[in-house]
Design a protein around this nucleic acid. Structure first.
Length: 485
RNA sequence: GGCCCUAUCGUCUAGUGGUUAGGACAUAGCCCUUUCACGGCUGUAACAGGGGUUCAAAUCCCCUUGGGGUCACCA
């Protein structure tokens, strides 16, 4: 159990959409906070002006909210540590870099990007790690002032001392040690006056009293820089937890090239938030038992960082899909028919009026045949309008020379029944089959084809009942005209 | 390439010195069935390799190999 009330943050940069990896990071932060009566903070890291995307912040917030991950503090929800957008915190970064420069823990650098590039190329040619050579550290105060007065562009760099061991005590990975010799004199303040991630992140985490930094493993190798900064400032170092990466099927870091990575894409495809959250939660964490279906609340109860895995996890869409199916089955028919209504409004059937009661029946008939609600429309449009075409393969296979006569007969029999129930349709069919001395199947298959246009689907009598007697007869008549062998 | 992380079925994982190595997805077969599904049952399938430590190693240690991340005035 965590003693104090932890404060954690999800700190995305607003460069477009919420990545599913980001969703998982946000989720683990959220779960950790909820489990330990902590605070979940959203902080926007928009220090790269070149990559800003308009509307990205709003999109991020909307998507997080959709997933059910409401933040306790963040943009629009000040908890006394704002602002929560880094571009509005520039004064802080300036103040703290000045402090570092005064103490010679950071220094001015006037090197051009050309010189830096040359340096890198040379080092790479020699098979060395590319690292700044502290060239500008030699500048005297006078030289610096002169360059400053001439308005020469500059950056501020971290002054890393050699031959020091830097320990990271990671909750997931244990002790990880780096030699400071491999740590570059990281740029802290860019020439445009904006901080880099490393500086802004450390300053804000300190100022916002973040107790646990839970982030992706791609940050592990820059954590020594952050530790150094905490030490230089004399600040308490938060606990770190570096999460295993989400992977493509080929085991590389999950990327756009190999499929959808935006949460909004999955949302648009019809994945339930419950399924996506459940799936992503289990990518790198398990409670230690065989339980596999969790609500967000249950996750909050069971989650712990100690049980997070170390190795990366492949984002397996098949499993996500089956999870979506499972969560779909858990929804009530009423919930599903509301979702169906929404989908209908977006479809070509938006003008077809259909009663709530019928919607409910359709949902019941279809729910175990779909992975997404919209598949009811895609695969069973015949509930909303007569079929436009008839499956040719099915015709070939199921339609015989006597089909027409049998359907005609069936149509007449049900026509005589007042308000037929499902059993009435079934009895009628059995009667026709018996009188005509054919198997039930000889009628059933052509009949299904006639009313739905396809060969698969819910129980035939369910379809009749949902369609109603008039419509059923109507469709048989249309089919008798259109289907010729 | 340097540094760092990592390694149980195809995939997600359980397992923390003694298990017939368990579950889920996927896959194959069977059953149910008017179709398509659901469901039920059964099967195929894993401890990367090599050294140690130990009476005993998937579990602890070392090496190798594989995979990944990172080396920007991006986060």
């Amino acid at each position: 159990m965590i003693s104090e009330n932890p404060r954690v943050r999800f700190a995305p940069s607003p460069t477009g959409y919420l990545h599913v990896g980001g969703l998982r990071t946000a989720l683990y932060n959220y779960l950790f906070a909820k489990k330990n009566s902590g605070t979940f903070i959203l902080r926007i890291e928009d220090t790269d002006r070149t990559r800003l995307v308009e509307g990205a912040v709003e999109n991020l917030i909307t998507t997080l909210k959709w997933a059910g991950l409401d933040y306790d503090e963040g943009p629009g929800k000040d908890g006394g540590y704002g602002p929560y957008v880094q571009s509005e915190r520039l004064d802080f970064y300036k103040k703290y870099t000045d402090e570092l420069v005064q103490q010679k823990k950071a220094y001015y650098c006037f090197c051009t990007s050309d010189r830096l590039k040359e340096l890198r190329d040379e080092q790479q040619k020699g098979g060395l790690q590319s690292k700044y050579d502290k060239h500008c550290l030699r500048l005297s105060e006078n030289e610096i002032n002169e360059k400053l007065s001439k308005n020469e562009p500059y950056v501020i760099r971290l002054n890393v001392q050699p031959d020091e061991l830097i320990h990271i005590n990671d909750i997931i990975r244990g002790d990880v040690t780096f030699n400071s010799n491999v740590v570059d004199d990281q740029i802290l303040l860019k020439s445009d006056g904006y901080p880099t991630y490393h500086l802004a992140n450390v300053v804000d985490d300190h100022l916002m009293k973040i107790t646990h930094v839970i982030r992706g493993e791609e940050w592990l190798s820059s954590t020594p820089k952050h530790i150094l900064l905490y030490q230089f400032f004399g600040w308490e170092i938060p606990k770190f937890a570096h999460l295993p990466l989400l992977l493509n099927p080929d085991k590389s870091k999950l990327s756009k090239r190999q499929g959808d990575v935006a949460v909004e894409d999955y949302r648009a495809k019809g994945y339930l938030k419950e399924a996506l959250v459940n799936f992503v939660a289990l990518l790198g964490w398990s409670a230690g038992d065989d339980k596999e279906f969790y609500s967000l609340d249950e996750l909050c109860q069971s989650f712990s960082l100690e049980r997070v895995n170390k190795a990366g996890a492949v984002f397996n869409i098949e499993k996500l899909q089956s999870m979506n199916f499972a969560h779909l089955q858990k929804k009530t028919d009423e919930e599903l028919s509301e979702l169906l209504k929404d989908e209908l409004a977006l479809s070509s059937f938006k003008n077809c009026s259909i009663s709530n009661n019928k919607l409910l029946l359709i949902v019941q008939a279809m729910k175990e045949r779909i992975n997404f609600v919209k598949e009811i429309i895609l695969n069973a449009g015949y509930f909303f309008a007569p079929p436009q075409a008839y499956d040719q393969d099915a015709i070939k296979k199921r339609w015989t020379t006597e089909s027409a006569a049998l359907l005609q007969k069936f149509s007449e029999v049900i026509n005589a029944i007042e308000n037929p129930a499902k059993e009435d349709y079934e009895n009628a069919l059995h009667r026709v089959a018996e009188e005509s001395a054919v198997k039930n199947a000889a009628i059933i298959h052509p009949l299904r084809l006639a009313v739905s246009g396809v060969s698969g689907g819910p129980g035939l009598y369910d379809i009749f009942f949902i369609l109603g007697k008039e419509e059923t007869i109507n469709r048989i008549n249309i089919a008798l005209e259109k289907i010729k062998v």
